[in-house]
Simulated assay, not measured.
Amino acid sequence: MGLSASLYSGTSGLKAHGEDMTVIGNNISNVSTIGFKASRMYFEHALSQQITTASGGGQVGRGVSVGAVMGDFSQGSLESTTEATDLAVGGNGFFMVSPAGQELNYYTRAGNFRFDEDGYLVDPHGYRLQGWAVQESNTSAAATGGATSSETTGVKIKGVPQDVKLENFQSPPQATSRVDMI
């Protein structure tokens, strides 16, 4: 191994380590950011060389580079808040938000939503939360063909995702039929 090859191995390692420190610094600086997902860097060999040794063949690394920076989308901890419009995604999934009057969709796990002056549920950027309309169902025994409530589970949706808007901040009371606890 020549002098320049040895220097390249060392400098490529320092460069990759510096980029890893940037990723770690970004994770630390955003630790209190709502919905932030940390990243992790993966390294790979930049070059390698086959050499012959007394015990046979071998391989010597000639440098390192950044293989990939991957986001960690595992479930984070859920926190209690005093706002009724703060939401959280349990498990896989994202909230879909869209700028008003545009056909763009963005995805986020940050659930800090508030109602704007027009009644739309929006994120801090003013993007409107997207959601499906829920199909109202008649839960009487005659309407379900005699099926019990335990046999009819799930929520039926209709249409395509649209802006979530409350026309009236009051709704008729409805008995709770299912509770999930985490």
Rank of each mutant, 00 (worst) to 15 (best):
Q102F: 15
D86T: 11
A110N: 04
N92K: 15
N105C: 04
R109Y: 12
V97K: 01
L78D: 01
A88K: 06
Y107A: 07
E79D: 11
N105Y: 10
T82S: 13
G101F: 08
V97D: 01
M96A: 11
A110R: 00
S80Q: 11
G90I: 08
F94Q: 10
G111D: 03
N92E: 08
P99C: 02
S77P: 04
T108A: 10
A84Q: 07
P99H: 05
S77K: 12
G91I: 12
L78S: 07
L87G: 04
T85E: 13
E83R: 14
G111R: 07
M96C: 05
G93K: 08
M96G: 00
G93C: 09
N105E: 11
Y106F: 15
G111F: 12
F95S: 00
A88Q: 10
Y106V: 07
L78A: 10
Y107K: 09
T81K: 06
A100G: 09
G90M: 10
L87H: 02
M96I: 15
Y106R: 10
N92R: 14
Q102S: 15
L78Y: 15
G90A: 09
D86H: 13
G93N: 08
A84L: 06
N112Q: 11
V89I: 15
Q102Y: 05
E83N: 15
A100C: 01
A84D: 04
G101Q: 05
T85Y: 10
A100N: 08
F95G: 01
F94S: 08
V97H: 00
V97L: 06
S80D: 10
R109H: 14
M96S: 02
S77C: 02
S77F: 13
V89D: 04
G90E: 05
L104I: 15
N112A: 12
T82C: 05
A84R: 03
F95V: 03
R109A: 12
P99T: 03
A88D: 00
D86Q: 11
A100K: 13
S98A: 01
Y106G: 01
G90L: 10
R109Q: 15
T85C: 05
S98E: 00
E79N: 10
V89S: 03
G91P: 02
E83I: 11
S80M: 13
E83D: 13
E103R: 12
V97M: 00
N92D: 09
A84Y: 03
S80I: 11
Q102W: 09
N105V: 13
G93P: 10
Y107D: 00
G101R: 06
V97G: 00
E79C: 04
L104Y: 14
L87E: 05
G101E: 06
G90T: 04
L78E: 03
M96P: 00
S77G: 09
G101S: 07
V97F: 06
F94E: 02
S77Q: 12
N105G: 11
G101H: 07
T82Q: 14
Y106S: 08
Q102K: 15
T108K: 03
P99R: 05
Q102T: 14
F94Y: 14
F95Y: 06
F94N: 03
G101I: 02
